[in-house]
Computed example of a mutant assay.
Amino acid sequence: MAQDRAGAVHGIAPGATLAEKIEWLIRNMWPAEVPPARNNVETAAAIARATGEDISSTTVWKLRTGRQDNPQLRTLTALANFFGVPIGYFGFPGEADPIDDDLTFKALRREVAGGVVRSEVLRALVDLSPEARWVVDEMILAAAQADRKRKKAQG
């Protein structure tokens, strides 16, 4: 199952960079039928096998680290095909994109199907009053912010 290496789904931040979007795809949308890659060499090989597009591990590294932010269309097309996203997902930095929300929901559905997020929790959330849902929303956002800070501090 494709999921965040830590076992959680994190949405794509509005205005995310190309590097952040690619990293999110690798962590959350890795095809279930493809063994997880342990490094950029394996990532590039998996994409090349699945799409027929020759992509190097150096290209993957540059894209993931933001050292390359204007890849060739064929590279973006290979990434889009491999991860099952529309080419428009890559968009332009600073633009909000409804595709990001759609992909976040798709990743969340995978988490529910895989048992990482319990479906009864989501059903209970729907049944909450608007006021109670607001409290839960604020708690989730605060927990996500604390988690991001913790991860940033770790490296």
Rank of each mutant, 00 (worst) to 15 (best):
P93M: 09
K151A: 12
A144T: 14
L73I: 12
D101C: 06
P98A: 11
A144M: 12
V117K: 02
A113Q: 12
F83P: 08
T104W: 07
A124G: 08
A144D: 12
A78Q: 07
L63P: 03
A143I: 05
P71C: 05
R110H: 09
A124Q: 10
A78E: 04
V136Q: 00
K62V: 04
K106A: 14
L103R: 14
T75K: 13
K152D: 03
D102L: 15
V117H: 01
L141K: 15
R64T: 15
T104M: 06
S119G: 12
L125S: 05
V116E: 02
V60W: 02
T58R: 15
R110P: 01
Q68W: 04
R64Q: 14
I55S: 01
A132W: 01
P98I: 11
T58P: 00
G66T: 11
R123Y: 09
R67A: 05
A132I: 01
P86A: 14
F82A: 07
R148D: 05
L141N: 06
R109G: 06
I99N: 05
L103E: 11
A124P: 00
F83W: 09
G88M: 06
Q68H: 07
R67Q: 14
D97V: 03
F90L: 03
G115P: 04
Y89V: 03
N70I: 01
G84C: 08
L141S: 04
L79S: 08
I99L: 15
F82S: 09
D100K: 04
E131N: 05
L103P: 01
P93Q: 09
L125H: 01
F92S: 15
S56L: 09
R148I: 02
D97E: 10
V112K: 01
A113K: 11
I87F: 11
A78T: 08
F83Y: 14
T104F: 12
V135W: 01
L128K: 05
L79A: 08
I55T: 04
G91Q: 15
V60M: 14
G88N: 08
V112C: 02
D137I: 09
A146V: 03
